[in-house]
C-alpha cells in the first residue's frame, strides 16, 4: 500500500503551468527524492502536498484518504510535516520551545487548564517537555536545548527544523533542500542522519540538489523539469538516464 499517492496533479499560475499532470507515490519506510533543475516545480509540489496551494486537477491520497483541498493545518494531523528551503524556525524561541510548538497538536489540555494550572496541565506539559528533550537528544541537540534557535549553527538549525516536524507526530517528512549551504562534511552527516530517520520508521520525501546525498540515500527518484516528470527510477537508473542529463546539462546538439 502506498503511504502517499498523487494522481495526475496539475497546478498553473496564470499561464505558467508549475506542475503538469504529475504522478508519484511513496511507500511506507522509503526515502524518495525529487530532483530537477531550478524552477522545475519541486517546491511547488511540496506546497501542494502540504496544502499551501490547491491543485487545479488531480487527487492526492494519504493512507488512501484524499487530502487534496484540505487546509494546511489539517494535513499535518494526517501525518505529513515539512521543512522549508529557507529555514523558518521560531528564531526568538528556545530550541525546546520550537519542538514544543511542533508538538502542539498532541499537547492535550485546554486554555483554562493552562490559566488555572490544573493537574492535567502539569501532567501533559511535563510529559511533552520530557518527550521533546528526548527527541532533541536523539538528534544530538541535547546540549542546545535551552539556546535560542537563532544562535544555532546552520546545520543545527536544519536539524531542529526536522525535529520540530517530527514532534508533530508525522510519519512522512518532507525535507526541502536540507543540504543547501552545507559543506562536504555536513552533508555527509546529513546523509547518515536521513538514513537514521528511515531506520526509526520515518518515510521521507526529499528535494535536494546535492547528488552525493540524493544518490546515496534514496530508494527511488523522480526527476522533474518544467513541472513534468521526465524520469523516475532507482538511483543508478537515473544516473544513466539521457533525459535527465539533458535537463541538467542541455542538449548536446545545437538547435537553430
Amino acid at each position: 500500500m502506498n503511504l502517499l499517492r498523487a494522481e495526475n496533479i496539475s497546478l498553473s499560475f496564470g499561464g505558467l503551468t508549475a506542475v503538469n499532470d504529475f504522478n508519484f507515490y511513496i511507500n511506507e519506510g522509503q526515502v524518495v527524492s525529487i530532483i530537477g533543475p531550478n524552477g522545475a516545480g519541486k517546491t511547488t509540489l511540496f506546497n501542494i502536498l502540504t496544502g499551501i496551494y490547491k491543485v487545479n486537477q488531480g487527487k492526492i491520497y494519504m493512507n488512501e484518504e484524499p487530502i487534496d483541498g484540505l487546509h494546511a493545518r489539517k494535513i499535518v494531523s494526517k501525518g505529513i510535516a515539512r521543512t522549508f528551503q529557507n529555514i523558518r524556525l521560531f528564531s526568538d524561541m528556545r530550541v525546546i520551545e520550537n519542538v514544543l510548538v511542533g508538538a502542539h497538536i498532541n499537547t492535550d489540555y485546554s486554555f483554562f487548564d493552562g490559566l488555572f494550572r490544573t493537574k492535567r496541565f502539569y501532567e501533559v506539559e511535563n510529559k511533552k517537555k520530557q518527550e521533546g528533550a528526548k527527541l532533541l537528544e536523539s538528534l544530538g541537540l541535547e546540549g542546545r536545548l535551552s539556546d535560542y534557535a537563532d544562535n544555532l549553527s546552520y546545520g543545527e538549525q536544519r536539524k531542529l527544523e526536522i525535529a520540530r516536524a517530527m514532534a508533530t507526530g508525522a510519519k512522512l517528512l518532507l525535507l526541502d533542500e536540507p543540504a543547501a549551504g552545507m559543506n562536504h562534511q555536513e552533508s555527509e552527516d546529513l546523509r547518515v542522519f536521513i538514513s537514521n530517520l528511515k531506520n526509526l520508521g520515518y518515510t521521507i520525501l526529499l528535494i535536494e540538489h546535492d547528488m552525493r546525498v540524493v544518490m546515496n540515500v534514496s530508494d527511488y527518484i523522480y526527476v522533474m523539469d518544467y513541472g513534468k516528470k521526465i524520469a523516475e527510477g532507482r538511483p543508478h537508473e537515473i544516473q544513466s538516464n539521457e533525459a535527465v542529463a539533458m535537463a541538467y546539462l542541455g542538449d548536446s546538439e545545437v538547435h537553430l
Binding site: 502540504t50 499535518v76 494531523s77 515539512r82 510548538v101 508533530t168
Partner: peptide, 12 residues
Amino acid sequence: KSDELATTMMGI
C-alpha cells in the same frame, strides 16, 4: 509572531 506560515505548518 515569529512565523505565521511555519506555525500553520505545525497544524495550528
